[in-house]
């Protein structure tokens, strides 16, 4: 476990340091009088992330434990499946809103993901989706006069 979290921390701090360094380079590419504050911030962040990196390196565990971590790597997919799926589904939903329209894609998304993540009777899922849309319609559209995103259909 210790080795695993060591790898995780190390990877994290390397990535953060890299991003900070890139942002710093970018910050210095803007005219000086408009980028003093971003320059200061990005440099500070880079320094802080280097400290983070140093700390991560210092906490390196024994070699024996490191072997254990190799085994755990295979479980990457199992531990990150859920977040990836959720982002994917949400992204599909947002694209669908723009293409198909708000109401249809919302029903598709809600019913689809409820069915995907759990087992419910269809009428429960459709009922809840309909209720959700009714609330959105009543509150946002009728009462507040907001316009829903325009798609090809509803």
């Amino acid at each position: 476990m210790a080795a695993n979290s060591y790898k995780k921390e190390l990877g994290f701090s390397v990535v953060v340091t890299g991003i900070c360094a890139l942002l710093t380079i970018r910050a210095f590419s803007y005219p000086g009088d408009s980028s003093q504050f971003p320059r200061f911030l990005t440099v500070t962040m880079t320094l802080l992330s280097i400290v983070l990196l140093a700390r991560a390196l210092r906490s390196r565990p024994d070699q024996a434990e490191a072997g254990e971590a190799e085994q755990k790597r295979s479980s990457f997919w199992t531990s990150h499946k859920m977040p990836l799926l959720i982002f994917l589904l949400t992204a599909l939903y947002v694209v669908a809103i723009q293409v198909i329209g708000y109401f249809t894609s919302t029903v598709l998304f809600l019913v689809g993901s409820m069915a995907f993540f759990g087992r419910h009777r269809p009428w429960v899922m459709f009922g809840i989706s309909a209720l959700f849309l009714a609330v959105i319609y009543a509150l946002f559209v009728r009462f507040l006069g907001l316009r829903l995103p325009e798609g090809l259909l509803f």
Partner: peptide, 22 residues
């Protein structure tokens, strides 16, 4: 079987909505 049923229902719904939009 349950999933198939859901899919069928969804398709029917899309068709229904689409006919309105037209």
């Amino acid at each position: 079987n349950g999933q198939k049923r859901i899919l069928g229902t969804l398709l029917a719904l899309v068709a229904f909505v689409a006919s309105f939009a037209a």
